[in-house]
């Protein structure tokens, strides 16, 4: 955590101490009253569930013989964790989302950044319209977007397919064993590019215009301005969008869950989250599911934290 706090306090500036003496006692209790409602719920719905998941993950239900007696709950140590890491399908799920993230996140963010720069560029016209058009998909909930795209992917229904066919490009199987992951990536890209673009665009808008003007007067090209001035200044926005995208990738669930119905190539362990869900709700092993949830939470935390640490070092060096 220290790094994150360093980053924030470094960039947000020293947090001001509220002035001196008067009525110290009353004020010193005010912050508790302000913080308490959030902290109570944060404790109840964030920290305790994590603790509870860790606790549950240390137990295991055991039967004996034919198993006619109710199972007993036994302390299992870390055996659920060794089961999680020993399950090839879960590991494959992790590898799959990592591959997905390595490809999809950069593609989406580059796409979003280019769009933000284009909209911000002086040459752009109809920017209000385009901003809205790019952003629209974000207003469509993930499940709905997945349902929508599932119609567009279905061989017998797909207008994309029929257009391609009529142009003699042949037909594409969007749901094949090797393509379906990228079909999911397309849905995610479609949904979130506009959202990321807006965050980056908001960052661009906050840059004082004088910076560009003087650069322009100095004869810098728009490309140079974009690369040398604009881009470095929106690095914080890019960090934010990257972190959210990494978190989002690792929790991938609704898109594969929806597409499972129409593709024969999405197994019940396709992503770690799908594994955990099925472990709890169809395989009835809440203990193993808890271990999976813990692994997922810790893994996500470490990855996004490592990313923040890496980028903050860089920005400090800068």
């Amino acid at each position: 955590m220290t790094v994150t706090t360093e980053v924030s306090s470094a960039t947000a500036g020293g947090v001001s101490d509220v002035a001196p003496r008067p009525r110290r006692s009353r004020r010193s209790s005010a912050h508790i009253a302000f913080l308490a409602p959030f902290l109570v719920l944060f404790l109840l719905f964030f920290l305790i569930p994590i603790g509870y998941a860790v606790y549950e993950s240390l137990f295991k239900k055991q039967v004996s013989g034919l198993g006619l007696a109710p199972p007993t709950t036994k302390f299992a140590g870390l055996s659920n964790y060794s089961a999680v890491f020993g399950t090839a399908s879960f590991i494959h799920g992790i590898e799959r989302v990592l591959l997905f993230g390595i490809v999809q996140v950069p593609v989406m963010l580059v796409f979003a950044t280019v769009l933000a720069l284009l909209i911000d560029s002086v040459a752009a016209r109809f920017t209000r319209f385009f901003r809205l058009a790019f952003f629209l998909p974000y207003g469509i909930p993930g499940v709905i977007a997945a349902i929508l795209w599932s119609f567009l992917y279905l061989p017998s229904l797909s207008p994309i397919d029929s257009v391609l066919k009529s142009l003699h490009f042949g037909s594409i199987s969007f749901l094949g064993a090797h393509t379906v992951l990228w079909s999911i990536a397309n849905i995610v890209t479609w949904e979130y590019t506009g959202y990321n673009m807006l965050i980056i665009f908001a960052g661009l808008q906050a840059i004082p215009r004088e910076l560009f003007e003087s650069a322009r007067v100095d004869g810098a090209s728009e490309l140079k301005i974009a690369m040398r001035i604009k881009l470095p200044l929106v690095v914080p926005s890019l960090v934010l969008t990257s972190v959210f995208s990494i978190i989002g990738t690792l929790q991938l669930f609704s898109e594969p869950q929806v597409l499972r119905a129409i593709s024969t190539n999405i197994v019940s362990t396709y992503t770690p989250n799908l594994s955990a869900y099925n472990q709890a709700f169809t395989l009835n092993d809440p203990n193993l599911a808890a271990a999976m949830a813990v692994v997922l939470a810790v893994g996500t935390f470490i990855l996004s934290f490592a990313f923040l640490r890496l980028t903050s070092r860089r920005s400090i060096a800068r």
Partner: peptide
């Protein structure tokens, strides 16, 4: 940094 879906299962339990 903790994903919401990772919390949902423990919350359910």
């Amino acid at each position: 940094l903790v994903p919401g879906t990772a919390l949902a299962l423990p919350l359910y339990l």
